[in-house]
């Protein structure tokens, strides 16, 4: 644990809600609109946090507990993310497994709480969410496997610091495949287009949004915040994977590059959202499994290359 990692946690906790704003700005740019402010999510969260929640008559205590657990799962997972290409606050052998499963805990509560309101729609989102995330898990670990294989280390921050620029330059195909597959996971886990449309207004086609239909006020604020943090975590993983922190020793420079990287990820997500339509629900499993297949191809390439 060092100063950089502590700063990282605070920066992430504060800056998490910027990413959705940047994505929306990008989308507005493509659409020729002015769009909402970059800090819009902050305004929303503050507005919601001041209000008193209304609960569904059917809801049990789980609905009241779930937002806390969901937010806590994102925050605890954040402590395991490498900070500005350096160590994470807490790092140990196999820390990425804990990270993946902490996010899984949040998902479990999100899904069960969705069934808590006895709604006709929320179960729909829940049933999709559990399946898609279960299918995405193997491809996430497949990408991880290649990096462990290359770097011989089992700690996330160590893996990222050892992934030299050289390796990616020598294996552009592997880089491209892992990047594609992890990016698909980012889109799946954070309910972005082409998997899910955060702006959709039809309950029947929603995945993430439909599960939080009955949340309001402080609870909704917690969930929106947790979702933004989750997007931050996945984006930080992709940025961390691509850029080697050991080359850049100056901390100010590290922070600058990291910030730039996150902005680029947000821009890419925004671009994808602007230029693609969401795919049909029945094709989503194929899409996810396909992205897993990319990671496995990368794995085979790596083994064959040695």
């Amino acid at each position: 644990m060092n100063a950089s990692s502590i700063i990282f946690i605070f920066v992430s906790l504060l800056a998490g809600p910027i990413l959705p704003g940047l994505i929306n700005k990008t989308k507005a740019l493509f659409g020729g609109r002015q769009g909402p402010r970059v800090l819009q999510l902050y305004y929303d969260i503050f507005k919601l946090a001041r209000k008193t929640p209304t609960y569904s008559e059917t809801a049990s205590a789980l609905t009241r507990i779930a937002p806390v657990v969901i937010a806590l799962s994102s925050i605890t997972a954040l402590t395991l993310v490498p900070s500005f290409f350096n160590d994470s606050v807490i790092h140990f052998t196999g820390d990425i497994i804990l990270m993946a499963y902490l996010l899984g805990l949040g998902r479990f509560f999100m899904v069960t709480a969705a069934l808590d309101r006895g709604s006709a729609f929320e179960g729909m989102g829940a049933s999709r969410e559990v399946l898609y995330s279960a299918l995405a898990e193997p491809s996430f670990f497949a990408g991880l496997l290649i990096m462990i294989y290359e770097t011989n280390s089992l700690e996330l921050s160590e893996i990222f610091s050892k992934l030299s620029l050289n390796f990616w330059q020598e294996n552009p195909a592997i880089l491209f495949l892992i990047l594609c597959s992890w990016f698909v996971i980012l889109l799946v886990e954070n309910a972005r287009i082409p998997i899910d449309d955060p702006n959709t207004h039809l309950e029947l086609t929603m995945i993430h949004e439909v599960m939080i239909l009955d949340y309001s006020a402080k609870d909704l604020a917690l969930i929106e915040y947790a979702s933004a943090l989750k997007l931050w975590i996945y984006s930080a993983l992709i940025v961390g994977m691509l850029i080697n922190g050991e080359i850049i020793t100056n901390m100010a420079l590290q922070i600058a590059i990291f910030t730039l990287g996150m902005a680029i990820v947000a821009f890419v997500i925004g671009t994808i959202e602007s230029i693609t339509a969401r795919i049909k629900l029945v094709f989503i499993p194929k899409f996810i499994v396909g992205s897993g297949a990319l990671a496995i191809i990368a794995l085979i390439l790596k083994v064959a290359g040695n």
Binding site: A100, Y101, G104, R107, F108, V111, V130, L131, S133, A134, L135, A136, E137, P138, F140, F141, A142, L144, L145, G292
Partner: peptide, 13 residues
């Protein structure tokens, strides 16, 4: 990794 990942996800479902 892939197997347990899938098993874990489906069990949660």
């Amino acid at each position: 990794l892939l197997g347990l990942g899938l098993i874990g996800g489906l069990a949660a479902a």
